[in-house]
Structures are given as structure tokens and as C-alpha cells.
Amino acid sequence: LLDGNWVLVFTAFSELLPLLSVGSIPFVKVEKIGQSIDTRSLTIENSTTLSTPTFTLSFSASAAFEIRSPSRIQVEFKEGSFNPPEIKSSVDLPESVNIFGQNINLSFVQQFLNPLQNAVAGVARAISGQSPLKIPIRGGQTKSWLLTTYLDKDFRISRGDGGLFVLVKEGSSLLDW
């Protein structure tokens, strides 16, 4: 049941809170925080995707794990990876944005951006297909543990190094809420 792609729907892990707060910055959205687990190769990949009106950025950390008990694994992070930004072929601005309690209409900005669409598309073609930047993870923060306290085909609750993680299996109807 642990194999597959999981989507983080709740956490109380303090180290992820700054990342989650990025979503409160105007024009930046946390699209997805996920975890892929492959029990055959004993690997985990934690990934994050952020988006703005002009690009999408994704990064991940890969790890190997050892099974310590039926519910506990020991994790060692090996490498971080930053994918080249995916430049959107058109600037996708909302009609308005709320900044410090003020609702600001952005329709006039879109008028000025329309002529830049071709330039943005050219940059997108130049960047696409570039290899990710891989960075080895070294130091004292490479090892962690994960204890799964509940697991079924759609839902998982895990704890690890002071954090609580609630995840839903990708493709589950639970994500439609």
C-alpha cells in the first residue's frame, strides 16, 4: 500500500511551514507537495511545485530508505534536484489580487502584457529540455525516520522527526474535496 505517489494535504512539520507560507505571497501558488515511494528500489522522492503567472518551478529531494519495522523506516537523503523553470507561453494573471486587505484590479496590467506574449513563448522554447540541476545532500540533516501510523489504499498518516504528515494517494477521490 505504501508504493506510489502521495500528495501532502496537511502537515505540522515546522520546517515545511516557510514553504507553505510562500503560497500567501501574491502571484505565487504552491501547486503540489508530493512524495513518491518505491518499495522495490527502497527510494523516496519528496517534490514541490510552485507556480506564478509566468512560470512553474519544481524541485525535489531523493532518498534511500531501510525498513526498520512494519511501520517504521530509516531515511537518508542523497540528492536535491532543481528543474529548469517551465515558462508559460502566456502570462496568466488573475483579474484582481488582494494585497494587505486591498483588492487591486489587474485587468489594465494584462493589456500591457499582451504584446510580450511572443517574447515569453520564445524564452519558453529556449529553456525547455534543459537538464535539472543536481546537488548532493551532505551534512547532519541527511538522516531521518518515518513512522506510518495509519495506511490504507487512499490515505496515510505518518510522523517523522517532529512532524506530522497527512497524505492522500494521487488519483484518489479524496483529493476531489
Rank of each mutant, 00 (worst) to 15 (best):
E45D: 05
L2D: 07
D176G: 11
A119M: 09
N5Y: 15
P136Q: 01
E76P: 03
Y150H: 12
F55P: 03
K153P: 04
V97M: 06
S158R: 03
S24K: 13
F165S: 04
F108L: 07
S24Q: 09
I67V: 15
E95T: 04
K29M: 10
R72G: 00
T39Q: 14
S36G: 05
K143Y: 05
F77G: 10
S89R: 15
D38F: 08
S144P: 02
K88I: 01
D152I: 05
S71I: 13
V123S: 04
D161K: 07
A63L: 13
S81A: 11
V28H: 11
S96I: 03
T142Y: 12
E45N: 08
N105R: 01
P26H: 10
P26C: 11
I25Y: 14
D3M: 04
S107L: 11
F13A: 01
I127L: 15
L147Q: 02
Q130F: 03
S131M: 09
K134A: 00
N105W: 00
P115A: 00
S131Y: 09
F108W: 01
Q130Y: 00
G23V: 12
I127F: 13
N46W: 09
L93E: 03
D154T: 12
R40L: 08
G171Q: 07
F59E: 01
F55R: 14
Q110T: 00
F165Q: 05
L16P: 10
N5W: 14
I127E: 04
L151Y: 08
F165M: 06
L20A: 11
V28E: 01
L116I: 00
G139V: 08
S69C: 09
V109E: 02
Q110R: 04
S51E: 10
